[in-house]
Nucleic acid binder design. Sequence first.
RNA 1: GCCCCCGUAGCUCAGUUGGAUAGAGCGCCGGCCUUCUAAGCCGGAUGUCGCAGGUUCGAAUCCUGCCGGGGGUACCA
Length: 536
Amino acid sequence: MTANDPVTLLRREVEAVATGIAGTLPSEPSLDPPDRPEHGDYATNAAMLVASSGGRQPREVADDLAAQLVERLGDSVERVEVAGPGFVNLFMSDRWFRESIASLFDSGGPKVGPVPDPRSTLVEFVSANPTGPLTAASGRHAAFGDSLARLLRATGHPVTTEYYVNDGGSQVEKFAESVIARMEGREPPEDGYRGAYVEELATRAAAEAVPADRVGEVAIGWMLDSIRESLERFRVGMDAFFSERSLYERGLVEEGLGRLEESGHTYESEGAVWLRTTEFGDDKDRVLVRSNGEPTYFGADVAYHADKIARGHTLLLDVLGADHHGYVARMAAAVESLGGGAAGFEAVILQLIHLVEAGEKTKMSKRAGDIVTLDALIDDVGVDAARFFLLERSHDRTIDLDLELARSKTSDNPVFYVQYAHARIRSIVRKAAEDGIEAAGALPEEPVDPSEKALLAEVLAFPAEVHEAAEKRAPHRICAYSTRLAAAFHAFYRDCKVVGIGDEELERSRLALCEVTGSTIRESLELLGITAPESM
RNA sequence: GCCCCCGUAGCUCAGUUGGAUAGAGCGCCGGCCUUCUAAGCCGGAUGUCGCAGGUUCGAAUCCUGCCGGGGGUACCA
């Protein structure tokens, strides 16, 4: 966070005083707007932290802290109170609020500063088999991975996003068999692919006279093209599509497995090559190379992760489905064996998603062809609503996506609530421009309205929210934050007229608050990949 | 059996590196448009935070055990 961020400056004062009292702080003290207005604009638990580590009475430390803060903060603060078990509550002065608005406006809104220890991060997500179109479930992965990448970039991490394409292996063969079967007018095999799209691919392959031995490769290419289109349409920025087959072609599988063998964590048994993943907490060892000499999916994936490390990434972040959770321990073991601590592996597990239509859940199975595709979901509810509904929940919760609600263009739909706040702001800004009013930091005589204070506090919270969401891999926090911010604006809109109130200084200050709120809503939505309309 | 996720208001869920009287949306009841967009705002009712112990100044949050729901447990990918 930047040095001129008013909340950061306040935090530094609190920490300086607390450190002066205690010597060192056991952990970073809180500095948050409390739930109840009578507890002030900001409250800190610093005194309780100091007391618990120093064996002093919390209230006594709090009194000391409060007195010194009054001294140091001067006319920024109205009064400081000690309350409850030892909270120190800060009531900021109107001057502080007005100057904060001015400072935010001058810097173009709250700035999310970089983390002190950026990590070159490779976010791998979706990576769905190119044997069928992306499903609504893939959509959750797409929205989540994309938004997480945006959050990590916003907090200063260099990020690359990748889709691992499983274009080798037995599923691809089954897929090719299925397409060929359709071309020849037969039913696909029992364990093959039976969706309508297989027939379309067969028709096209027949029309272009694709030879049977190339059908698999060609059909996979077509599927991949359509997957790229779907992702693009869903506003997902994928830097690269990494082909499994290319690993073999470039000799990377051999190289990666070779490095693993050098590490001394592999052994041969029953003709297969195993990785001793149990050394790193897995419940059994895993096969890297089958007894027939062919690497397993895991073996190739290890080579892929070895390549990620070779490319210089220090954090390998895999977004996986709940059905892959058993995979995490073995990949963590593999990266540990390879990297020697240089690169970290981290998996985020996304739980399942069900689409709910009129209270009824739809089941999704790719092989049976009984799927709702991502494209169909987008056609149905639109990109903005789809992304919001898929991002709204914590990654560890299953989602029941209510299609009826997502479709609705009414106030029930939370995404419109936030967008509407932005549109309202832009409308005010246009109106102000017509009247020749310019936003500016100003010190009007009028007292700061409680709605102005509440709104400013939410805007000021933005950088901390973004950092927390990035650290916790929690884009859903930005959904919640944007909703809170919008609500604070709507309340301000009711209480405080901006244009045409007579007091020019007040007009300028309020317009500045509108401007910084608008840009903060826009940036929040941008992190979610959702548009911020100028009007609705 | 073992592993992972969940259990908070009628419904869908936030909040979980311990902090003040546990929150939001929807739904329900009642108000607010001659004024910058009513896709909005304000007020009201609603809780054994799954159960039982433990840790301490303080537990929805940490520990242990149990109950219920979902997912996984391949020389498949």
